[in-house]
Design a binder for these strands. Structure first.
Length: 426
RNA sequence: GUGGAUAUAGCGUAGUUGGUUAACGCGUCAGAUUGUGGUUCUGAAGAUCGUCGGUUCGAGUCCGACUAUCCACCCCA
């Protein structure tokens, strides 16, 4: 016997027993998005590596150490998508969709791949529900996607998540802020942790959300981005906050949230839960006004969010959310004997052609065992067909929950069975 | 990449200070008078105790290495 091959680290099988959870979140997210006027878009699982380097940022962790990159024939290298935004922006440009009138609003449900060490709520293959909106610079657009995220979370029965928002400004005010920040942290060079020392040059903003107690303490006294925003950025942020308040959205302004994807500008936000472990960000997103032009399009304001479906499901489970039941078998045919078996094959097929979920024995089991099986799969009705029934051309359909039996002619089985279902009210 | 924990049948667990055929629950399968489920009862199948090596007369039980999984750091969804 050879060694069993196991699934790759950080991946999950969605087995039949779990599929309803996925169907539920897929339905809730797509319905909410469509209610908000977003249309679905599907893009390739792999893209030219350069797309991610240019969009996510060549110093970001995602690009520098988490991408699955393969070389194809020739010099091309492709990368399994680590996030959804870049591919969507590329597709919007490549298909000229931004010329069809603005705003353009799209959503997607996709697998993403990052080579990280797995832990609770963090996988190498994970799934995101994401939305992107193009063309609006208005704070109403920021509010709309936050409201969409909230709507999804509420529909999932987990409306109480904490919403943290921040503005990281435009490139102009962020540059000034970074200088101020650098100046501040230079004074604490001897105390910062090693990783933060590295960050000091490349991306000082990342020091703000360092978890090391010392860095945290130092960061508490650091200059705050909100004090460095230019007039436009500040006004944008103030407007967003008042729109959210008008809509009854509770939020916390958290100057420490800094997103790890380089393309963000102005508004950034996260929905956070504390009941699924350390990886509590269920939804994260923001504005990326510079990305479309960075990828070769006309300067177009844009924004969006990603929502981790595995984390969403974990959160729903921890809050005891109910998932819709799986479809059941309408009728299970129980053949007794070879000839009956052949007849059941035909009858089952006829029933199915009428849209009825019908099954019959495939295991060559006895009548009793078949009845047990019918019960196990929660068949609504069962019907034994043997030599007596074949001879009289009449079988008795049994309601499995009431035990009530109804005579049905084998000649027009599907018709008569449908009458039984209809009169039962379901 | 760095730490910590865990590793016994399909799943969940027990296994005492190392001592004969590794236990229990759930699940699966089969029976409880010949063609009718859910409850109950009986029985059966199913584990080279993660892998390799070491200590020992003897190891699921002790030691080491490896592997895998989980959790945390990092990062993010």
């Amino acid at each position: 016997m050879s060694m069993q091959i196991k699934r790759p680290k950080g991946t999950q099988d969605v087995i039949p027993a779990d599929i309803r959870k996925w169907r539920t979140v897929e339905r809730i997210t797509s319905e909410a998005a469509e209610r908000f006027g977003f249309r679905e878009i599907r893009t390739p699982v792999f893209e030219d590596t350069g797309l991610y380097v240019r969009s996510v940022g060549d110093t970001s962790d995602v690009v520098t150490k988490e991408m699955y990159t393969v070389s194809s024939k020739g010099d091309d290298t492709f990368t399994l998508r680590p996030e959804g935004t870049a591919g969507v922006v590329r597709a919007m440009l490549e298909n000229g969709i931004l010329n069809e009138g603005l705003p353009q609003k799209v959503y997607y449900i996709i697998p993403c791949y990052r080579h990280e060490k797995p832990q609770a709520g963090r996988l190498r293959e994970f799934h995101q529900f994401g939305v992107e909106m193009f063309g609006s610079a208005s704070p109403y657009a920021d509010a709309e996607i936050i409201l969409l995220a909230r709507s999804v979370l509420e529909s999932c029965g987990i409306g109480g998540l904490e919403l943290h928002i921040n503005s990281i400004g435009c490139p102009e005010c962020r540059a000034k802020y970074k200088e101020a920040l650098k100046g501040y942290f230079e004074g604490y060079k001897s105390e910062l942790c090693d990783t933060c020392l590295e960050r000091l040059d490349k991306n000082p903003m990342r020091i703000l959300d360092c978890k090391s107690p010392v860095c945290k303490e130092i960061a508490n006294g650091a200059p705050v981005i909100l004090d460095y925003l230019c007039d436009d950025c500040r006004e944008h942020f103030e407007s967003l906050k008042s729109i959210l308040e008008d809509c009854g959205v509770k939020f916390t302004v958290d100057p420490k949230i800094v997103r790890g994807l380089d393309y963000y500008t102005r508004t950034v936000f996260e929905f956070i839960t504390d009941c699924i472990g350390a990886q509590g960000t269920v939804c994260g997103g923001g504005r990326y006004d510079g990305l479309v032009s960075e990828l070769g399009g006309q300067k177009t304001p844009a924004l969006g969010f990603g929502m981790g479906l595995e984390r969403l499901i974990l959160t729903m489970q921890s809050s005891g959310a109910a998932f819709a039941e799986q479809p059941v078998c309408d009728i299970y045919l129980v053949p007794a004997g070879e000839e009956a078996h052949r007849r059941c094959a035909v009858l089952t097929d006829l029933l199915r052609q009428r849209g009825i979920a019908a099954e019959y024995d495939l295991m060559e089991r006895g009548v009793k065992a078949q009845m047990k099986y019918a019960d196990k799969i929660k068949a609504k009705y069962a019907c034994v067909i043997g030599s007596d029934e074949l001879e009289s051309n009449i079988a008795r359909v049994k309601n499995m929950s009431t035990g009530e039996e109804t005579a049905v002619s084998l000649g027009c089985f599907a018709d008569e069975f449908m009458k039984i279902i209809n009169s039962a009210g379901d």
